[in-house]
Amino acid sequence: MSAALTLQDVSVQFDKHLALDGVTLHMQAGERVALVGANGSGKSTLLRVAHGLLRVSSGRVSVASEAHQAMVFQRPHMLRTSVLRFVVWGLWLQGTPWREAHVCAMQALERVGLHDMVERSARTLSGGQQQRLALARAWALQANFVLLDEPTSSLDPHAKREVERLLAQWVAAAEVSLLFSSHNLGQVKRLATRVIYLEAGRVLADLPVYEFFNRPLGESHPEAHLFLKGELG
């Protein structure tokens, strides 16, 4: 498989704070990689570097030329517009004719169950509905490399299950690469094929999801072992 993302010895420094410290990461197309670790471990910074939102202090970042990226934030920024136009504008800005953009947007909103809210203001939606709207826009844009920063952390249990269901459907139906951060270890088990544990901006464990949760990590990855026991983070 081709590489979707490569980080080679990447560091990011904010004043005196080293947010990422020599991170090397190779992600293949079609992988579903979860970033876990305590608050401040570097998960969000890594996602923003991968999406081109942050400039690195040193090292190299390479994204596959065929990767069409979309990022969904923990609290998606909602434009002051309708649900329908929130999706349509994203398509139109990338060159889709206005009428065709409307058709594609309606299909995406149908897919996430928001087709009956097209005239609502995007800013009046609940947290779960806003996450689904952000996913609808990524869907409509035909993204094949999706980055998510704690996509369900502020949602109620029903909304979490709905967002997870949509993500699982998406990655099952298409060759989509998924890089996401989460504190919900059950969600990591359900969605990821691989887990990366970060601490103080460094990668301290990088394992297939089954090995991360089922292999004894006390000797090989002691920090990740303590994290799983709830003694870190």
Rank of each mutant, 00 (worst) to 15 (best):
C104G: 03
R161I: 07
A4N: 09
S65K: 15
G127H: 09
L91F: 03
W98S: 11
E110D: 14
P76Q: 10
G186N: 14
L191A: 07
L5W: 03
V118G: 05
W92S: 10
L178P: 05
V146D: 01
S58K: 15
P216W: 00
E223R: 11
G230R: 05
P208R: 04
Q107Y: 02
L47F: 08
L155H: 09
A108Q: 01
L204C: 08
G113Y: 02
E175G: 07
Y197Q: 06
D116I: 06
L109R: 01
Q169A: 12
P76C: 08
Q13W: 13
R123W: 06
L91K: 01
E231T: 08
H51L: 05
G233H: 13
H183V: 12
L54C: 09
L232S: 05
D149K: 06
S153M: 09
R194T: 12
E66Y: 11
A64G: 13
F14W: 13
H221D: 02
E211H: 07
F86K: 01
M78E: 10
T6W: 00
M117C: 13
Q28N: 14
A122N: 04
H158R: 15
G42F: 03
Q107V: 06
V203N: 03
L155Q: 06
I196E: 02
A50M: 07
V209E: 01
F227R: 08
R32V: 08
L25C: 02
E100Y: 00
L178N: 11
R85F: 09
T81V: 13
L91C: 06
G37D: 07
G40M: 05
L198A: 04
S58T: 15
H68Y: 12
N184G: 04
K16M: 06
E223L: 12
S220P: 01
H221E: 01
Q28D: 14
P157Y: 09
Q169M: 13
L191P: 05
T193F: 01
Q94M: 09
A138Q: 00
L133Q: 01
G230I: 10
V88F: 03
L109G: 00
L148A: 10
S153F: 05
E66V: 12
W139F: 08
H68N: 15
V23S: 12
S154A: 15
A101S: 07
A19L: 10
I196P: 00
T96C: 12
V72K: 03
F86Q: 14
L147P: 08
G40S: 04
S2A: 14
R75M: 05
L228K: 01
P151Q: 07
V163L: 10
R60E: 11
L7R: 11
R60P: 02
R165L: 12
R55E: 14
F213G: 02
H17S: 11
E231A: 13
W98Y: 15
E66Q: 14
G201Q: 07
T6G: 00
Y197P: 00
F14H: 09
G95W: 10
V203C: 08
K160P: 02
L232K: 13
L135V: 04
L47M: 10
A138S: 03
V171L: 05
L25W: 13
S41A: 15
E66D: 14
A134D: 00
A29L: 12
M71A: 08
R120V: 09
E110R: 14
G128E: 02
Q130V: 04
E31F: 06
G40D: 04
A136G: 04
V10E: 04
A200M: 06
M117H: 14
Q69P: 12
A67G: 09
G127P: 09
